[in-house]
Computed example of a mutant assay.
Amino acid sequence: MTTPLTADSLYRFFRTGEEETFALQGVGLTVERGEIVAVTGPSGSGKTTLLSCLAGLDEPDGGTVRIADERMSHRGEHLRSRLRARHIGVLFQSGNLLDHLTVDDNIRLVQRFSATPDRPTAHDLLRDVGITSRAGALPRQLSGGEAARAGLAVALANRPAVLLADEPTGEIDGETERRILALLRERARAGTAMVLVTHSRAVAAVADRVLRLRDGRWVR
């Protein structure tokens, strides 16, 4: 059986003038089918950079990411895009929705790029995240919490093997957070591997593992 996600010794640095800042310093990670891994740590610890490298949206300066046993890192963007479309759902804190499309159309657009069988309808996805009434809204008409839930619906649209999410319960109330966490656990039981960057204790509580980043390294 293939391993959904493996990252081996990831390094990422950024140069400003003559200064180098290491965002990741030898980070490794394996996530099995149906496993939820919560990644915590202070702002600036490398969490979002890690997600970007895992998704193939940013290239590590060293190390390798493999998705479903296929190498993601250090390949052309067209190959990385194809792997993302087939295997990965990505949720960041912004930029998940195209501004000129309704919520419903954002979901349908993502589904056009994948031939995933038995995928949910846009209506079912929006029902699951509790915003069916906002299907026809444009992103600018959504509250912060609604936009986060719409972004999650887009990320789950093709039943991804891997879900990478940055603060999946950000800007929502406690009752809605419980609903979203129940949905994530349900998707994990169906086999989705998840990496959830979070500051929420509730998210960490439902995870199978909690890992902490500081200064680009795992810490105990």
Rank of each mutant, 00 (worst) to 15 (best):
E70R: 15
N158T: 15
L83P: 01
P139E: 05
R75T: 13
G89D: 00
L98C: 06
T121E: 11
G76R: 14
R127E: 14
G151K: 00
E19K: 15
S143C: 08
E59N: 12
P42W: 06
G44R: 03
A153M: 12
T21S: 10
E146G: 00
H100K: 08
P120D: 09
G130V: 11
L79H: 13
S43D: 09
P139G: 01
E77Y: 05
E32C: 08
V37T: 07
A147R: 13
E59R: 12
L29V: 12
R82D: 01
I131G: 06
R82I: 04
H123Q: 14
I131F: 07
P120F: 07
A137D: 13
S73W: 07
L97F: 06
E35A: 05
P139M: 06
R33S: 14
G144H: 11
S81C: 14
I107R: 03
L142A: 08
G63A: 12
T49D: 03
T121H: 13
R15Y: 01
R86G: 01
I131N: 00
G41Q: 05
A157K: 04
A23Q: 09
V103R: 02
R66V: 11
V110S: 04
T132Y: 02
E35F: 01
R84P: 03
R86H: 12
G144K: 09
H87E: 03
T64Y: 00
S45T: 08
G144Y: 08
G145I: 01
G130L: 10
L109R: 10
D104V: 05
R82T: 06
A38E: 04
R119E: 03
F113T: 09
Q141E: 15
V65G: 06
L83M: 14
M72K: 03
L24M: 09
K47M: 07
L50C: 12
A23H: 02
Q25I: 00
L152G: 04
E32H: 13
I67V: 15
T49R: 02
I67Y: 09
N106R: 08
G145K: 04
R134W: 08
L109H: 07
H78F: 13
R71L: 03
G17C: 07
E35I: 05
L97Q: 11
S73D: 07
H78Q: 12
F92H: 06
T40A: 04
L109S: 08
G44C: 12
F22C: 10
T64N: 14
L126N: 04
G63K: 00
G28A: 12
G144Q: 11
L79D: 14
T30M: 13
G63E: 00
A55C: 07
Q141S: 15
A155K: 02
A115H: 15
S52G: 09
